[in-house]
């Protein structure tokens, strides 16, 4: 037997060799599976870019949709998405951050607080299409806001509100207690403490969460279909009460058509959508990174 191993326990040694082989095999398996999964997801991106860049030009960005693929573009969808996301930001950010501040800095941490917390966690898990149905019943029909930008924005705001609240609370939680105590010791009220110390200290974290939440809203399709965003819009919305379309709706419309050309148009629109999302995510990662470096 080779003079291997410390201590020759002959039977134990052969079994140890087996155990080592198993460990190596397992590590290899996990790595292989990971890279296979990654390859599949990369394939998706590759396939989109190969098809999408066929139509990708200035004309594509500046034309209205059309029955003729070579004339079609995403102008109204892009403008609709910008409108929508601005309205969503205006509505959801103040409410979301205010809720997080109230829960962390003002509310009593009692039974009621726990219930609100559980409620928010569960809202975050409600399927987006259910929000769409509520939007349809409450905003479109109930409040008579019709199939307008504002209906879409309100629906989307409800959808991402839990995400913003949860992320903001996490950011506020990591602000050290000592900072608050220092402020209170100087005679500051709760609000003064929250406004001038807690909010600035948690700002990067909140911003990151908000950006990620908004990027979710940009990609959501189902709720917009529910509230009846139109699939063919050859005009630009001019105010919150106007009808509209948005990028994911346009993509859905093009994908559902049988002709190959429209599928390629869809791929082109997906590229635009992904670029927007990538930019937002990169910004969020950048902000988080810088804040972490500052904290040291």
């Amino acid at each position: 037997m080779a003079p291997r191993g410390i201590h020759a326990r002959s039977t134990a040694e052969t079994s140890l060799r087996k155990r080592h082989a198993r460990a190596r095999l397992f590590a290899l398996f996990c790595a292989a599976v990971t890279w296979a999964g990654a390859a599949l997801l990369m394939l998706l991106l590759y396939q989109i870019s190969v098809n999408g860049f066929k139509w990708f030009d200035v004309q594509f960005l500046t034309s209205f949709p059309s029955r003729f693929p070579y004339k079609a573009g995403i102008k109204s969808a892009l403008v609709g998405t910008l409108w929508l996301i601005s309205l969503v930001a205006i509505i959801s950010i103040p409410i979301g951050v205010a809720t997080a501040l109230y829960l962390e800095e003002f509310g009593k941490k009692g039974r009621l607080g726990r219930m609100v917390e559980i409620n928010i966690a569960n809202l975050a898990g409600v399927p987006s299409i259910v929000y769409g149905i509520i939007g349809l019943a409450v905003f479109v029909r109930g409040l008579g806001l019709e199939r307008s930008l504002i209906s879409g924005a309100l629906t989307m705001s409800l959808l991402i509100l839990p995400v913003i609240i949860i992320a903001s609370r996490e950011a506020i939680k990591v602000v050290p207690m000592t900072i608050r105590h220092a402020a209170f010791a100087l005679g500051a009220t709760r609000w003064q403490t929250a406004w001038s110390h807690v909010l600035p200290a948690s700002f990067p974290g909140i911003l990151t969460g908000v950006i990620l939440a908004l990027s979710r809203a940009i990609g959501e399709t189902a709720p917009l279909i529910m509230i009846g965003a139109l699939t063919y819009v050859a005009f630009l919305p001019e105010g919150p009460m106007d009808a509209f379309t948005a990028l994911p709706i346009q993509i859905f419309n093009w994908v559902s058509r049988p002709q190959e050309e429209f599928h390629e148009l869809a791929a082109g629109a997906i590229i635009v959508l992904l670029i927007v999302l990538l930019t937002m995510n990169a910004t969020a990662i950048f902000i988080r990174h810088r804040a972490e470096k500052k904290r040291g």
């Binding site: 997801l41 394939l43 998706l44 396939q47 989109i48 098809n51 990620l212 990027s215 979710r216 940009i218 990609g219 959501e220 399709t221 189902a222 994911p248 993509i251 859905f252 994908v255 599928h263 869809a266 791929a267 997906i270 959508l273 992904l274 999302l277 990538l278 995510n281 990662i285």
Partner: peptide, 22 residues
């Protein structure tokens, strides 16, 4: 890890496109 988070954020309509065309 960040790439995973990014992939988790790809809109589902994109996966629908992938299903149908690929």
């Amino acid at each position: 890890k960040p790439v995973l988070e990014l992939l988790a954020g790809i809109p589902t309509v994109v996966y629908g496109y992938f299903a149908l065309t690929f």
